[in-house]
Amino acid sequence: MKKGKYIITENTNLAAGIWKMVLAGDGTAVTAPGQFIDIKLDGRYLRRPISVHDADEGSITIIYKVLGHGTDDMTRYEPGKPLDVLAGCGNGFQTCGDGSLSQLRRPLLIGGGVGIPPLYLLAKKLIASGCLSQVVLGFNSAEDAFCIEEFRALGCTVNVASADGSLGTKGFVTDALPAADTYDCFYTCGPLPMLKALDKAIPAGIPGQFSFEERMGCGFGACMGCTIPVKGGYKRICKDGPVLAREEILWEK
């Protein structure tokens, strides 16, 4: 994790309540897809943790949803504004080529709503390492859909589901999953009910990585504000997560 000054170069509305912000600054602070940045906002005490959508040497892109006063403030930030940012927070996704997943070449990526952004940098990395990536994206309706074409442009096959049926398959991401024999591992980020449903829907033998969100104090492991129990102990979502391995997760009943 590094602290730095970043300058907003773009801040645009992508879909209903969904905004994209591009920050110029040290993009190398982001060391893995699935990490987040923690942004200090004017007049708000706690930083706002937002997952990284994309990063390169000189920039970091985030896609955020307006959920409260802080993210609402952010929509009014103009290009040129400097931001105080902690970048490269959290562990991120483990990708093909490192660790236990090195032999698994057919990943499935499943994102719901504002859980989709961190999967984009992940898909880029996976495709660069030669993995055939299938992607399932879920939205409430066509008007809050975003990023579909960006995933297709990377070369991913993309299935889309919407709760109201206005786009793609009517239903949830679990209604748009490809056949279980077409992927050998999966990565997911989205609302908790979606993560739970995926754990039930995907055959138990397939390894998966789940990205969680939680209200945080610091975002770097100091305050124990976001700790949850896992098998064999407990983990801080901000520092030991936000990505947890399927086998260590304790699902609440």
């Binding site: 708000r44 005490y45 209200r215 945080m216 104090g217 305050c223 124990m224 504000g225 700790t227």
Partner: peptide, 8 residues
């Protein structure tokens, strides 16, 4: 959790 909330 939640263990954290913001205030003015």
């Amino acid at each position: 959790v939640p263990r954290i909330a913001e205030a003015a």
